[in-house]
Amino acid sequence: MEAVAFYSFSVLAIVSALFILFSKNLIYGAFALFLAFLGVAALYVLAGADFLAVTQIMVYVGGILVLLIFGIMLTQKVVRQSEQEIHNKVEVLTSRGVAGFLIGSGMFLFLGYIIIDARFKMQGEVINTNSTIRTIGVELMTSHLLPFEIAAILLLVALVGAAYLALNRNPA
């Protein structure tokens, strides 16, 4: 049962990722990314990371994807050159496509070779508790307190910087 869920969600994530790669319309790509993120969140649940799965859905699907779709809509061409032009069309040069295919498949072969060759010896127990929230909360507030605070400051700086860049249309 678990194996069926794992492989079906993996196929969902990979097929949606391939759809982004081959779709010409960027909005369709963004919605396929939504499916890919959901598949990845399901993989997190199967690996015993329930809190991260919920965080993934809230942050990526609720925040980042909406921002990306806003970005696509705000960068529309107002004037279309021709009536037949497809909405949000992304051209792919043949040379770029060949380079992407070669680099992507080469990278996959390389990583696959490393994974097969590695023979990880895992120590310790596999996760068997129902929830990881307690451990994550305790760890965040004790041994990972400094990165937690730095992440807070990073988010504040990113918020101020993004608002400045996007609002102030004429800084000069």
Partner: peptide, 16 residues
């Protein structure tokens, strides 16, 4: 690894 390589190929090929 498959998702990473597909993401890499998307970043290389998309002209947007």
């Amino acid at each position: 690894a498959a998702l990473f390589c597909i993401g890499l190929a998307i970043s290389i090929t998309k002209r947007h």
